[in-house]
């Protein structure tokens, strides 16, 4: 029993961080070079068995990747692509892992078979969060998006594959949310050390200090539970469902609370479009609301067997 990353996992995290640092600026759309680097690094097949064309790690390493993506609020269809790489359809899988078929996230909108889609590409694929199928999208019309870096569209789609594991989706979304919770905690701590008022760093005021301590605890709880859930899912333990739902609940709450408090800790600059603090708020809100959102995870968690 050990819940800290192994040296090999530390290396994976380091390599992910350096790719993100080289190719991504928080608050900007995901660059093409980032997408290419991600494909070249094998991110899209990280947890797919080698026999199926992947790198051969597991959902645990995918969760570590999701946490890193959350930390720098990477927009774009990364998550859907990583998840869709587990499809049984070999042709689709190959193009997904290779990065030539980005996969959006989608769910039903209204009763007429319509979809709302996050980060869609025209004619591209989407992973439906409601029935765990892959669909090919037809006809996109864009909507104003709470998170301007997440393209929100209405569309419809035709199923091309099915049977993806919703628990993997939940763990990876929780991973992104835990990454957000951790990143904004760090943002507040570092601003608390730099920004001075009344002749001292604002981080010496207890109001700030205590908010930072609470943020750190929330982030730690979320991250650790995501690690645990990913391990439980990888090992197919009998309580895996329980731990996945627990991770989903705790990570969503941590991300929203921390991201919102982070704005307050920054004062006026936190309210600007220029500062990245609001990016985390809207990202957290979107990811905590998809697929029935926090409420559904709370219901499922109460129903899960321990």
């Amino acid at each position: 029993m050990d819940l800290l990353p192994t040296p090999e996992q530390e290396e994976i995290i380091e390599s992910i961080r350096s790719v993100l640092a080289d190719h991504h600026t928080i608050g900007e759309p995901a660059s093409d070079t980032l997408w290419q680097a991600a494909a070249a690094q094998g991110w899209f097949g990280l947890g797919v068995p080698e026999a199926s064309g992947g790198v051969g790690y597991s959902v645990v390493e995918e969760a570590l990747l999701a946490i890193e993506l959350g930390r720098v609020a990477v927009p774009g269809p990364f998550l859907g692509t990583i998840l869709a790489a587990h499809t049984a359809d070999a042709t689709i899988r190959e193009s997904v892992i290779g990065g030539t078929s980005p996969v959006a996230l989608a769910e039903a909108e209204g009763d007429e078979g319509g979809l709302r889609v996050f980060d869609a590409t025209d004619g591209g694929l989407a992973l439906r969060l409601d029935d765990h199928s892959l669909v090919r999208l037809t006809g996109l019309s864009d909507e104003p998006s709470l998170d301007p870096l997440i393209r929100l569209s209405l569309s419809s789609g035709e199923a091309v594959a099915s049977g993806l594991d919703p628990r993997r989706t939940s763990v990876l979304i929780a991973g992104v949310l835990a990454g957000i919770a951790a990143a904004v905690a760090e943002q507040s701590v570092s601003y608390g050390k730099d920004r001075e008022q009344f002749g001292v760093p604002i981080g010496s005021f207890q109001a700030i200090k205590h908010r930072c301590a609470d943020m750190a605890v929330r982030a730690e709880a979320a991250t650790t539970q995501v690690h645990y859930a990913a391990l439980a899912l990888r090992d197919a333990t009998t309580d895996a469902d329980f731990h996945v739902e627990a991770a989903a609940v705790i990570a969503a709450r941590a991300a929203i609370d921390n991201a919102e408090i982070n704005i307050q800790n920054h004062g006026g600059i936190g309210f600007t479009l220029e500062h990245s603090a609001h990016r985390y708020v809207t990202r957290a809100r979107v990811l905590a609301a998809v697929a029935g959102g926090l409420r559904r995870h709370q219901v499922d968690l109460l129903a899960a067997n321990l």
Binding site: D2, T224, H227, Y228, E245, V249, I250, R253, L301
Partner: peptide, 27 residues
């Protein structure tokens, strides 16, 4: 029901944190 679910998630995370703490101490 929501508060119960939150507590259930939190005690799970508490256990995970306890184990992570043990792992850290071991190192």
């Amino acid at each position: 029901a929501r508060r119960l679910a939150n507590c259930r998630a939190e005690v799970a995370a508490l256990r995970a944190m306890t184990i992570a703490g043990i792992s850290r101490t071991r190192r």
